[in-house]
Amino acid sequence: MHISEGVLSGPVLIAGAALAVAGTAIGLKKIDYDHIVHVAILASAFFVAALIHVNIGPSSAHLILNGIVGLLLGFSAFPAILTALLLQSIFFQYGGLTALGVNTVVMAAPAVAVHYLFLPFIGRSPRMTFIMGFLSGMAAILFSSLLLGLALWFTDENFFKTSLAVILANLPVMVIEGIVTGFCVSFLLKVYPEIISKKKANHD
């Protein structure tokens, strides 16, 4: 979910950049040098996951998985997502320099929110884990599209209908991200629980 260059107004871009800097600063503070390699390689995994396309009927969509990144990294999701987005703009020219702040906030703030909302419930029972995973994936995309809509709306009130269209267009993506995140979290908990429980131990 990217907003291209040249759409948003100056104040929105600057506010986005300021929030991104603040989030990234907090995130970087929480990473020590024992974990920085972990965060970096998970950021590459997040980058690669965005290359996975799943079918939706005749069309297809790529995974976003900012929900999982949020669950795994907490506040460190901010610098991780910023890095991945910067590399995406270098390689594929999605987004760019001036919208980088807004795009980071749009993707990373929901990831952090999901971490604090749903992580405490994950691992209580298999069914609970799936449901919370589903909600994380869905909520992350929902919040992201709401933030994107808000950024458009603050730019110009005439963008209201466009914002609604953005949110509606993301409804099927929300469901798919929910399903994929639910299965993915269940899978991680079965195969390699340390990746989640280590984070949980820090969290509690």
Partner: peptide, 14 residues
């Protein structure tokens, strides 16, 4: 695809 992505995160972490 979920398991695939999950495996990607596991391998990344290891």
């Amino acid at each position: 695809f979920a398991c695939l992505a999950g495996m990607l995160f596991v391998r990344a972490s290891l």
